[in-house]
Amino acid sequence: MEGSRREPLADILFAVTVLALAGIVWWGTASLPPPRYEPLGSAALPRALALAMALLGLVLLGRAWAGRRLQAAPASDLGFRPRPWLAAGVLAVLVLYVASMDLRLLGFVPASILALVLIGAMLTGFDRRRLPWLAGFVVVLVIAVQLLFTRVFYIDLP
């Protein structure tokens, strides 16, 4: 199991999450009524799955534990600089974007334009020369979709 040797820590975390999830599901099925119309009932499959996951999680945990002392493989040269924080930033903007519409703080058009221009700008590294083009693209896209959905399809946008 090549994968589990290279990333022992990630594996251990994953296995623990899986075990915790199995526990939560088992607990969640405890309140379900006994089978009534057929012998399986609502709880049978979730419980079986929780059990299977717990077993597999233990196997994974055992293997990862056994392999934990092995050195992680040296990071190969990707030829580019990975940008995990950029992805986190995009995700954060997305969350704010959806939240602002869900809570009816902003309408669909302003929320979309703001969020998309911001994401686009982040992706271009806040390149000033490209910003106007990007903003134009976003405005056209958002207005077009807004018109299409409200005028043609009668979808009720926030």
Partner: peptide, 25 residues
């Protein structure tokens, strides 16, 4: 890669389809 991880993934996917109104009863 790992068969164990594949099986865990399958169980996880199935489990996430469970919440809500049970389609049978």
């Amino acid at each position: 890669g790992s068969l164990v991880k594949g099986l865990i993934a399958a169980c996880l996917g199935m489990l996430l389809a469970m919440p809500g109104i049970d389609p049978s009863i």
